[in-house]
Write a protein that binds this DNA or RNA. Sequence first.
DNA 1: AGTTGTGAACTGATTCACAGCC
DNA 2: GGCTGTGAATCAGTTCACAACT
Lengths: 220, 220
Amino acid sequence: MTSARTRIPKPAVLRLSLYLRDLDARGSSVRWISSRAIADALGLTDAQVRKDLNTLGLSGQSGVGYRTDALREALRAVLGTDRPWRTAVVGVGNIGRAVMSYERLQAKGFGLVAVFDRNPALIGSEVAGCIVEDARRIAAVCRAQAVDVALLAVPAAAAQDVADQLVLGGIRGILNFAPVRLSLPPHVAIVSVDLTVSLEQLAFRMSLLAEMKQDAAAGG
Amino acid sequence: MTSARTRIPKPAVLRLSLYLRDLDARGSSVRWISSRAIADALGLTDAQVRKDLNTLGLSGQSGVGYRTDALREALRAVLGTDRPWRTAVVGVGNIGRAVMSYERLQAKGFGLVAVFDRNPALIGSEVAGCIVEDARRIAAVCRAQAVDVALLAVPAAAAQDVADQLVLGGIRGILNFAPVRLSLPPHVAIVSVDLTVSLEQLAFRMSLLAEMKQDAAAGG
DNA sequence: AGTTGTGAACTGATTCACAGCC
DNA sequence: GGCTGTGAATCAGTTCACAACT
C-alpha cells in the first residue's frame, strides 16, 4: 500500500539502526528533529541522513525537521522490528546465556519460544522461561513451534550441522555467533557476529593509529 | 621496513579477517592455496582476493597460488594480532563473562590483565584469573598495568563515563558492547558490537526475503 | 592447464551545492 | 534563519578481461 519501492543501499540499512537508536536515546519528549541533529550525534553528514530518510519515502518539514514519532515508526517498519519474530536459541553456553538475558530481545520483537542444547545435563532444565530441548529435536520442535529465527551460539565445529537442522525446521533467519561461514539456501537470511573478527578489526585500527603517530614523530 | 605503503580499503580489512579464519580452518597441512579456493570458500571472487592480497604487498606464484604460511603471517601482521595487547574487561555481567571465557582471546594476543565492575558484591572476587577491581579505579589501574585495550561490557547508561576513565588510563582501543555511540579522542580506536543492531539487520533481511517471495507469487 | 597481477570499465554510494519552502 | 529535497559531481570499491608466468 504505502511502501515506497526504492532500493535501500546496504550501508544505509546499517545507519537506519543507528537513527533508531539515537531517537530512542533522546526519549519521547522530543517531537521534532532535524537531519543535522541526528547527523551530529552519529558522526555523519546532514545530507546523508536526508538521503537515507528520503529513500524510505519519509518527508520532513522545511525549517523544522522530521516528526520523531513518524520517524521511529517508519524505521521500525522498514527494519522489520514492528512485528514479532518467534525466536529459538541454540547453545546454552556463555554466549547463549548472555544473549538470552539481553533485555532488548523482547523489546525488538524477538520473543523466545525454544532453547536447545546437546548437553544431557542441561536438557530438561529451565533457562529464561524455556525448557531446554535436545538439539537432536531441532527440526521437529522448530516446525511445531513455528520458529522464525534462531540465535546460533554453538561451537564452530557444530554450527553447520545445527544450521542445516534449523533450515529443515523451516527457519527464516539465523544470527550466527560461531566463527564460521555457514552455507544456507537463499531463502534464509543470515547475519554474523564474530568476536574474533571484531578483535582483529580493533587490533588493526590500533596498529594504524600507532603507525600514524610514529610517522608524525619521524617525518616533519 | 618492509611495509607496503598502500592504503587498504575499509571493507578489505574485514575480508582479511575472513581469509585468516579460512586459512586456520584448513589446518597447517595445506601449504599452497589459490585465490580461487579462498574466494569459493567465502563467497567472493578470485580477482577480489588477489587485489586484496596485492595491496598487502603479497605475491603468489603463477600456476600455483600463495604459500599459506606466508599468507597467515602477513595477515596477522597487518591485522595486528602478531603482538600482545594487554587487555581489560569492564563489566562482569553476562556479556563480560561470555567475553572473558572466549578461548580465542588469548590466541589472538588479547591477554587479560585486569577486570573491573562497580558492584561491591563482585569487587575482590576472582574471575578468569583476575581479581575484580572497583570501577572507580579504572584510570589508575590501567596506567599501572599498562593496559592497551578494553572490552567494554557495561550498561549503555554507564558506557560513556567508563570510556572517559579508560581514556584517562591511557587506553588505545575499545571494543564496545553497549548500544551507544561513544565520543572519544582521535587517538583511541573503537569497534562496536551491538546486538540490537545485528538483530535489526537480521529482521530487515528476513522481511526483504518475505517480500520478495510474496512479489514472486503475485506478479507473474 | 592453471594461476597471478593489473589497468580499464563499471557500479554503487557519498558529498556538494543550491533552489525551494516555512 | 533554519531546514528539506535532490540532481550533478565526485569518490571508493569491485569486477572484467587479458597478458604474463610456471
